[in-house]
Amino acid sequence: MSTATAPGRPPAPGAHLARKKRLFFPFFLPAVALYVLFLLVPTVATVVLGFTDWSGAGDTPEFTGLANYSELIASDAFRYSFLNTLLYIVVGGVGTFLLAFLFTMVLREMRGGKVVRAILFFPNIVAPIALGMFFGIILVYRPNRQGLANYLLESVGIDAVKFLAPENITWVVTGCLIWASSGFYITILMAAVDRIPPYLYEDSDIAGATPWQKFRHVTLPLTWDVVGVAGVLWTISAVKIFELVFVLAGPGTYSPPIRSWTLGVFVFDRSFGDQGAPAYGTACAAAVVMILLVSVLVVALRRLMRRDVIQY
């Protein structure tokens, strides 16, 4: 006691650390309380509700076991939703990353590259709903009053395409997705490429490496970690695609044709869509599928990408 804090002397470092630790709960609790209350508890509730049949206020949730899940498997709407979501994650992801890789090869030595990067990045801070409506106007098919895309096609003598028809919409959304997100991934990858020491590229120049060989032997191995993280970010964001599809494929206020659905649209349609009584149980079961899909893909991606840490 007597050695700890003599009056007028600063406390020993140990004492200071203990005082610091006392700050932990007042600082940490408010944020974590909100986090638990608004994110963790609802997630658990969703999992529980996934095993019930419930049509909302006035009705009592009734435990039905796995009935919701077998219903999902039998449902066309869900099958389309699941496959489309997977397609956006995989095809959109591959497309986005291929484009980003191609850009890293060129942008590294290009003058004005910073400006190009900034222009490509911009769609990332535009609301997906605005992007969707914007594409809706550009891609509209209406003889004599075509949207921009068909206007361009017709002006070079190609027949206009019904971009927004159900049979094409998935691919159109994939294209829009790649267009809107590649800037973000280009920026992430370029930040990693910029950290690669330039003399490694100079040595490959002396070796006579082609751009592909430089990418294969220098850029890719040295940005592998970042590519892995970017892949996880892509998966997380692609799994919840909703607004873009909703406004692009449909009339706007109620759900689009089921061929174009994603899991996000499915959950919304079964819970807050304007058609009939909500089926909260089914919606929650589909939401659980979303979480499972993200978890499985993220874990798989991390395993696939794992390798030794690189030290310079």
Binding site: P197, Y199, L200, E202, D203, I206, P221, L222, Q311, Y312
Partner: peptide, 13 residues
């Protein structure tokens, strides 16, 4: 030609 760089330019991976 062959070049030896100041920082050796060894590929870390």
């Amino acid at each position: 030609i062959a070049m030896v760089f100041q920082n050796y330019a060894l590929y870390p991976h």
